[in-house]
Each structure stands twice: as C-alpha cells, then as structure tokens.
C-alpha cells in the first residue's frame, strides 16, 4: 500500500482555486522531489497535507496508509506521522526549545500509548541528536526560533524531525536562505533519516538541494498540478532549461 496517495486534489484559498487536480502516489521508503516555479501552489500542497487552517479542499482526497485524513486536526496528522519542515519556521517567544521538544515528544508518546519520557533519557536523546546536527546546547535553551539565523531555524526543524521520527516528511523549500555549509548539514541530517519505510517529499525551486538529497522521483509542478514526472535526470534537465516551457503550458 502507498504511504501517501493524493487523488485529484482541488483546493482554494478565499475562493481562489490554487490546486487544480493533484495526483501523487508516494511509496514507503522513497524520496520524491516537487519542483516548479514560484507561486504555483507547491507550499499550498504541503500546508493542506499537514492540515493548516485557511484552505478549502473542494474536491479529491489525501490518504495516509489508505486512510482519508480530511477530518484530522493538524496535531492528529502530526502524531499519525506527517511532518512538515517549514519554509519559514515561526518564532515562539518565551518557550525554550527544549521545553517545546519535550512537549512534542510527549505528545507523540501519548499518542502511542507510552508514558512521558524520563528527564534524563530526554536529555541524552536530544543532546545526542543535536550534536549530530551541529546544534549547540545553548540553542536548546533559547526560545523556539527566536533570534535564530536562517540556517539555525532549518537545523532546528531537522532536529525536530530526527526526534519525532515521522513516517512522511515534507521539506518545504528547506534550502531557501541556506549557505552551502548549512545545506550540507541539513541534507546529511535528512539522508541519515532515510529508511525503508520512511518517505520524503522535497519541495524546491532549485536543483542544488537534489544533488545532496538524491530523489527517486521528480515531479514538475505548474499551474496547480503535477505536469510531468520522471527520474533524477528530470531535475538536471530543469536546471538547464528552466521552467519556461511549463509556465506557458500551464
């Protein structure tokens, strides 16, 4: 069974149709790249999958492990295994990153019928993962994303992914605003999380990221739907030719 199956998805914001019939099947253990020009609805798709309020699905459906997720709240989707790495992670003043991580881990454990994580165990777990991602301990004490650089925000997001161990992760333009070093760290973090049953949807405008996170399938997204799919070579073709053909076609 496919991990994610999107069937003829139409969606709008304030009455304006953004998604115009998206079809996408993602098998367990695969990495899909979604590429396309800006303003065509790529972020809308990621927001709808993760259940952000403010979008109206007018037609079609999204299945997670064969189950329609339409009625699920954002936190239910998260606990069911959907993770969104944000394009612009929001700042939450006053809430220490470690407090936030603990709350998220405990929410997941509760969902799994487990008790709260032991303080020492949590400490060990977080420090270990943070070290792997090159995140300094003092960042964990700072409020969530407050005063973080662009790279730090993205790394913090990947740390959350590593701790929450989602089934399906969406990286929404994670590469935007990253210098080459940060890009490498983030990519390595993602690659280390690739397993036989975990899948990724990597949304990006540039081919650059895909030379670090090599996708199994590449989709071209334009005019509110997927207009072409292919292997990794498609990304290189896009890099060379640009999106002009697709923009005019859509």
């Amino acid at each position: 069974m496919a991990l994610i199956e999107i069937q003829n998805l139409h969606a709008s914001v304030d009455g304006k149709e953004i998604l115009k019939g998206v079809d996408l099947v993602i098998e367990p253990g695969t990495v899909h790249a979604l590429m396309g020009p800006n303003g065509t609805g790529k972020s809308t798709l990621s927001n709808i999958i993760s259940g952000r309020p403010g979008y109206q699905v007018t037609e079609g459906r999204i299945l997670l492990n064969g189950e329609d997720i339409a009625d699920m709240e954002p936190d239910q989707r998260a606990n069911a295994g959907i993770f969104l790495a944000f394009q612009y992670p929001v700042e939450i003043p006053g809430v220490a990153s470690s407090t936030f991580l603990k709350a998220a881990i405990n929410a997941k454990r509760r969902f799994q019928g487990l008790g709260e994580i032991d303080a020492m165990e949590f400490l060990k777990l977080v420090k270990g993962k943070a070290k792997e991602l090159g995140i300094r301990d003092d960042m964990l004490k700072r409020p969530v994303n407050v005063g973080f650089s662009g790279g730090e925000k993205k790394r913090a997001d990947i740390l959350q992914m590593a701790l929450l161990q989602p089934q399906f992760a969406i990286l929404d333009e994670t590469d935007s605003g990253l210098d080459i070093d940060a890009l490498r760290v983030v990519s390595e973090g993602v690659n280390s999380l690739r397993t036989a049953d975990r899948s990724f949807l990597v949304i990006t405008h540039y081919q650059r990221l895909l030379s670090y996170i090599v996708p199994d399938v590449v989709h071209v997204f334009a005019g509110g739907k997927i207009v072409r799919s292919g292997g990794p070579e498609l990304a290189e073709e896009l890099e060379a030719k640009g999106y002009a053909d697709y923009v005019s076609a859509a």
């Binding site: 952000r52 936190d75 989707r77 998260a78 606990n79 929410a107």
Partner: peptide
C-alpha cells in the same frame, strides 16, 4: 504559532498553554 505547535503533535490546548 498555533499551527507550528500542532504540526509537531501538540494538541491545541497544549499549544496554547505553551
């Protein structure tokens, strides 16, 4: 902020509390 917290699995109540 609310969506960010909920996307990480926190219920709305927990998110608000936090």
């Amino acid at each position: 902020q609310l969506f960010y917290c909920m996307q990480r699995g926190l219920s709305a109540e927990e998110a608000v509390g936090l």
